[in-house]
Amino acid sequence: KQVQVGDEKYTFDTPEEARKFAEKVAKEKNLKVTEKNGNFHVE
């Protein structure tokens, strides 16, 4: 599963790991997490 933050992409083995990372980054940057096709976008 992938997490996209701006132009950066991070790959994780499980959706749970990806979601945790996305939520942590979103909180730090005051952004929101959206899920698209099983991948997460922080925007």
Rank of each mutant, 00 (worst) to 15 (best):
18 A>K: 01
28 E>K: 06
1 K>G: 13
38 G>E: 04
42 V>S: 03
40 F>D: 03
2 Q>T: 15
19 R>M: 06
30 N>Y: 06
11 T>Q: 10
27 K>W: 10
31 L>K: 05
33 V>D: 03
42 V>A: 04
25 V>H: 05
13 D>Q: 10
17 E>W: 01
3 V>I: 03
41 H>I: 15
36 K>N: 09
36 K>V: 13
31 L>Y: 09
11 T>G: 05
9 K>S: 12
14 T>I: 04
42 V>F: 06
42 V>N: 02
15 P>Y: 15
33 V>T: 03
28 E>F: 06
35 E>M: 15
5 V>C: 14
13 D>G: 10
17 E>M: 07
12 F>D: 00
40 F>R: 02
14 T>Y: 04
35 E>H: 08
1 K>V: 15
3 V>Y: 03
28 E>H: 07
32 K>M: 11
24 K>C: 13
40 F>K: 02
21 F>D: 00
18 A>V: 00
41 H>K: 08
38 G>Q: 04
16 E>F: 07
19 R>P: 00
10 Y>T: 02
38 G>T: 02
38 G>W: 01
32 K>Y: 10
13 D>I: 07
29 K>S: 09
37 N>C: 13
13 D>M: 08
34 T>G: 05
36 K>C: 14
33 V>H: 02
42 V>I: 09
16 E>I: 05
22 A>H: 01
43 E>Q: 10
9 K>N: 09
35 E>G: 04
4 Q>E: 07
36 K>A: 08
12 F>H: 00
23 E>P: 00
1 K>A: 15
17 E>Q: 09
38 G>R: 02
30 N>W: 06
19 R>F: 07
36 K>I: 14
26 A>V: 02
9 K>A: 09
40 F>T: 03
42 V>L: 13
43 E>N: 09
30 N>P: 02
9 K>Y: 13
24 K>N: 08
14 T>V: 04
9 K>D: 04
21 F>R: 00
30 N>I: 04
30 N>E: 07
26 A>R: 01
40 F>V: 04
18 A>S: 01
10 Y>Q: 02
34 T>V: 14
22 A>Q: 01
29 K>T: 08
21 F>T: 00
21 F>I: 00
7 D>W: 11
27 K>Q: 11
2 Q>M: 14
38 G>D: 04
37 N>A: 06
30 N>C: 12
23 E>I: 09
26 A>M: 04
8 E>S: 11
26 A>K: 02
18 A>N: 00
11 T>N: 09
36 K>Y: 12
25 V>F: 08
5 V>L: 07
16 E>T: 06
21 F>V: 00
25 V>N: 03
2 Q>Y: 15
13 D>C: 13
26 A>E: 02
9 K>I: 15
16 E>D: 11
27 K>M: 12
25 V>R: 05
24 K>P: 00
18 A>Y: 01
32 K>R: 11
7 D>P: 11
31 L>S: 08
23 E>T: 07
38 G>S: 04
13 D>F: 07
38 G>M: 04
17 E>F: 02
5 V>M: 06
